[in-house]
């Protein structure tokens, strides 16, 4: 057990905040006190660690951004500068596609009624992520994650909100949505099921989001049970739940 803590003094020394006299006294003490020397070394190590740790955090963030850029490459590549097919060639392809789609529609609309529901769940899921969290008012971190969410930069949303020690129901809700957007459904459900969220204005939204996530996971029994509950309630999502249950 250490007898005396010199944290404040050492920090003042390392920050060059000591007077010349105090600095000399401190350095004299260093010559005689091995514990103090060790404590000073630990402070230096801590500073080195904090710095290196931050470098690693930033590096991870940069790699996420770089990966996002790679993810966008295919759509950039879709920009074809020079047409490689003649108009008649395109018309032929369009005609074939129309026939194929027509047959497909006929086939699925007749024999596979679940297709409509699937399209709806995707639509609803997209709607879920297209929500506008509102104004940028609030602390710096709030404006950061709100902007990130609207830019679909879900990693940034997760990074910013997860850093907060105490999260508001709004933050938990958007954290859950961001995890679901990244395909981390387990984490998404964990967030959206939080008690603080269930007692807030986000309760219905969270429940609806969980139901859609169950569908994404293809966990039909759980999705069905939750959708039935929503459909029977006064939730703003009751009608949509009924539509999915059809």
């Amino acid at each position: 057990m250490r007898k005396k803590d010199n944290t404040e003094l050492i920090e003042a020394y390392l920050n060059n905040e000591l007077t010349a006299e105090d600095k000399a006294t401190f350095e004299n003490r260093l010559n005689a006190d091995k514990d103090l020397v060790a404590e000073l070394a630990l402070h230096k190590q801590i500073r080195g660690f904090v710095k290196e740790n931050e470098v690693q955090q930033l590096k991870n963030q940069v790699k996420v951004w770089l990966q996002e850029e790679v993810a966008f490459v295919p759509s950039e590549m879709k920009v074809v500068k020079k047409p490689f097919l003649s108009i008649s060639g395109l018309a032929r392809i369009a005609a074939i596609l129309a026939v194929v789609l027509g047959i497909g529609w006929f086939y699925f609309s007749d024999k596979n009624p679940e297709m409509t529901a699937e399209v709806d769940q995707d639509k609803y899921f997209t709607e879920l992520l297209a929500q506008n969290p509102g104004t940028l008012q609030g602390d710096d971190q709030r404006s950061v994650w709100i902007q990130a969410f609207s830019e679909k930069n879900y990693d940034q949303v997760i990074l910013t909100i997860e850093k907060k020690q105490e999260k508001t129901p709004e933050e938990i809700y958007y954290l859950g949505l961001s995890y679901s957007a990244k395909g981390n459904y387990a984490k998404a459900i964990e967030q959206l099921s939080m008690k603080t969220l269930q007692d807030s204005v986000y309760a219905e939204k969270a429940e609806w989001a969980i139901a859609l996530i169950y569908l994404k996971q293809d966990d039909k029994p759980k999705a069905k049970a939750l959708l039935q509950k929503i459909a029977k309630s006064n939730s703003e999502f009751a009608e949509k739940a009924k539509a999915l249950l059809k």
Partner: peptide, 18 residues
């Protein structure tokens, strides 16, 4: 080599920023 480029760039910009 894209992986090499990304790795050294991420390292450099992070170290520079800190």
């Amino acid at each position: 080599n894209q992986a090499d480029i990304e790795d050294v760039f991420a390292e450099a910009i992070s170290r520079f920023w800190v």
